[in-house]
């Protein structure tokens, strides 16, 4: 016979307490789940957004003012040098950032509203309408969207409004497809049945019960899409159909800079390009972080 008894141990903490940490630490842990990269991306994005918003206070020169001091390299007076019209590259870059954020933001927001609505209705109602719309989406997605965007902008006439509208149009299919999938997979779930049993109208089920639950894919795709939209707006401008000079735009600035590279004026394109890359990078980081945070299937591990 053999007996063994263990001394009583202290209770094992189940959840690591998050209460006694500083608020920053809590945001870092709570929202970013300790994802340092996503946090860094969000900080970078925040800085860029602040620069874009308070841009008019930051500019050192009038971004549109042409001066005889053309193609000057970076100096104390002109932090990023001057361009071929003697305009201050730094001031133009800051102003561009503001314009590009507004254009891409409006475009993606518009696409989210219209695309989600189409997707929700198609996914929820199904039937021939769904079939028709989804085949259309298939066709649109087989088009080379950058070229289509060029054609559409030329058809509508160049201008900021056209770019916004085109951004909306080419992004609608993404949301229509994603949200349709969400609606389709959720409409058979119990809580929708429960709402129906308690006498909720179709419209109320659609917008009060289904829509809020499609929010996380919208947020994820929204930030990744915004990154792509900022790049596309700049690319269109680079190809000469986007935002037209003299309005400052990062793509236009890089395009103009290209022509003066041969003369060694590298500063004309390097600043705007870096800012553009940083903007897209921060949005991608945030989107990637949100994706792994909000998609439980990808989150663990």
């Amino acid at each position: 016979m053999n007996m063994r008894s263990e001394p009583m141990n202290l209770p094992l903490p189940i959840v690591q307490s998050t209460l006694r940490r500083s608020p920053w630490r809590r945001i870092y842990q709570g929202i970013f789940n300790g994802d340092a990269l996503g946090f860094a991306g969000a900080m970078l994005l925040a800085v860029l957004l602040v620069v874009a918003i308070i841009g008019p206070l930051l500019v050192t020169h009038d971004p549109l003012l042409t001066t005889p001091k053309t193609l000057l390299p970076p100096s104390i007076e002109h932090w990023l040098g001057t361009d071929h019209f003697g305009r201050d590259v730094f001031s133009r870059t800051v102003t561009s950032l503001r314009i590009d954020f507004i254009v891409a933001g409006l475009g993606v927001t518009g696409a989210i509203f219209i695309g989600s609505f189409i997707g929700l209705v198609c996914g929820y109602l199904g039937g021939w309408l769904d079939e028709l719309v989804m085949r259309l989406v298939d066709i649109v997605q087989s088009f080379p969207l950058l070229l289509i965007a060029m054609v559409l902008i030329l058809v509508m006439g160049p201008g900021v409004e056209s770019i916004v509208i085109v951004t909306v149009l080419i992004n609608i299919p993404t949301y229509a497809r994603v949200i349709r999938g969400e609606a389709l997979s959720r409409k058979t779930l119990e809580y929708i049945d429960a709402a129906r049993c308690s006498g909720a109208s179709e419209a109320s089920i659609l917008f009060r019960h289904l829509m809020p639950n499609t929010l996380s894919p919208i947020i994820v795709h929204g930030s990744l899409n915004l990154a792509a939209a900022v790049g596309n707006v700049a690319a269109l401008s680079f190809l000469g159909v986007g935002i037209r000079p003299p309005t400052p735009d990062l793509g236009v600035m890089v395009a103009e800079g290209t022509n003066y590279l041969i003369q060694g004026a590298w500063w004309m394109s390097i600043g705007p390009g870096l800012v553009l890359a940083a903007t897209i990078f921060s949005l991608n980081l945030v989107g990637d972080c949100l994706e792994s945070r909000l998609d439980p299937r990808r989150a663990e591990g």
């Binding site: 690319a235 590279l261 394109s269």
Partner: peptide
């Protein structure tokens, strides 16, 4: 790997092309 491929995705092709040429 994640940062590298996000960077690859984030650098606009036209600017990278121009910069590399320079």
């Amino acid at each position: 790997m994640r940062v590298t491929n996000l960077l690859a995705q984030s650098i606009p092709a036209f600017w990278l092309g121009v910069t590399l040429i320079f």
